[in-house]
Structure formats: C-alpha cells, structure tokens
Amino acid sequence: MTALPPPSAKKLGLVIDLDTCVGCHACVVSCKEWNSQSPLGAPLADLDAYGAAPEGTFLNRVHSFEVTREAGPPVVVHFPKSCLHCEDAPCVTVCPTGASYKRAEDGIVLVNEDICIGCGLCAWACPYGAREMDGAERVMKKCTLCVDRIYNETLPEPDRVPACVKSCPAGARHFGDLGDEDSAVSRLVAEREGFALMPDQGTKPVNRYLPPRPRDALPEFDVLAPYLEPVTEGAGGFLGWLDRTLGKI
C-alpha cells in the first residue's frame, strides 16, 4: 500500500559528514557491489558498458561542489547522495501499484521489484534523484539502507551496517536511528548542526548531512617562526653529530 504509515518511532538513516568525505567513491562502488549480489533484487546493470555511452544504475553517487565564500579561498566539498528515506516520501504516494512502500517499523523506503511496472513516476516525484530505473531489468532501483545487512544475523555484528558505511575509509558515513534522540547519530547531528536537504520540498528526510567545519585561517607567520628554528643547532649527541656531518658534505 502506497499510503504512508504513521510516523515510526524508529527512523533508520544515514548521517553523512561533508567535512571528512574525501570523494573517493568507495561508497558508490561498495553499494553497487552489495546490491548487485543481493537476493532482494536484480543486479544493477550497466548498458553499453565498454562503449561510447556507458550508462549504469547506481544507488549512491558522489557529486563534487565548489563553494565560494565571502572571505577565504573557495572550498571543495564532496557530496555523496542516496535515498534520504523521507518521512513524507513523495515517491511512495505517487506509486500506482503499491511497489513503493515505507516500512512502518523502521521507516526504510523500499521497492517491491516484482510488482513495479517501471512507470518512473516515483523517480520524477523524488526531488533528490535517489531513484534510478534499471536499464536491463526495467524496474525502479533505490537504496535499501542495506536492509539485508543491517538485520542479517548471519553477518558478524560489526558488519550489520549499510555497505557504504562499512566501506567508507574516512568514517564520513554514520548509520543509526535518527528517531532516537540519544542515539550516536542523533547526538552527532545535534553537535554538528546537521541539516536536511531541500527542506522546502516538504519531504522531511531522515538522513542528515553534517556541514564542513570552519577552515582554519592562516595564522601570522611570526607566530610559528620560533618553532621553525633548526632543532639540531647546538645540539649534542647523535643528532648533533649527524647535523655536523651532513653539513660537511
């Protein structure tokens, strides 16, 4: 049923730290890898894979933005984007078949590929570009929050997080219950003033983004200058010997 369930107490989602994301695309690749082998759905295809215009399905993609500031040099921000598992998910209510649904128990937005007719209306309704129609399977694909990992008791406990979170080498992706004010992710959002994307679309996303921290301003050089004096000057022992010997060469 594509009617949205009443807001769940548990709101599973991601918190993405734009301060630490280095733009390596590891989450993009691990997401595609996990979701291609998952028994939950069809693999994510790549059309014209080695040709002139390759076009594949990805559930998570990393944009790179450049932000021009009023003071200081422009900054580059790498920006991963996947389904935000919105509370008021417009992609769910437009679905004519009931294939798109939001889980009442944890708020995860999913697609039942077996009854998806591939009309594409849900992708149109999503302001974030989180849904992609698979070119080979002709059904809608989206982030499942790795629902087949996070509850998967055959996996060791530390692996019961979404593949993108597990693979991030920078620790820029956090998974947890954003409905619980005391959860680690909720505290992170509170501490770092995490925000939602396109709030004016009225979708109430669960996922939050943490802003880049303010950049250090360059200090006056003479503040550091004393520390930049050669450390071996007048030094004895091995370092002194090394310094004198190297100086002679």
């Binding site: 979701n35 291609s36 082998q37 998952s38 028994p39 939950l40 759905g41 069809a42 693999p43 994510l44 295809a45 790549d46 059309l47 014209d48 894979a49 080695y50 040709g51 594949g56 590929e113 077996d114 070119g135 080979a136 399977e137």
Partner: peptide
C-alpha cells in the same frame, strides 16, 4: 569485443 550490457550476481528474473 567487450559485451554490451553487463550485469553480475544477484537475482535475475
């Protein structure tokens, strides 16, 4: 020559 469409793993119906 390389294949056109590439899919691997998972369930195919």
């Amino acid at each position: 020559p390389a294949p056109g469409t590439v899919r691997h793993g998972g369930r195919t119906s």
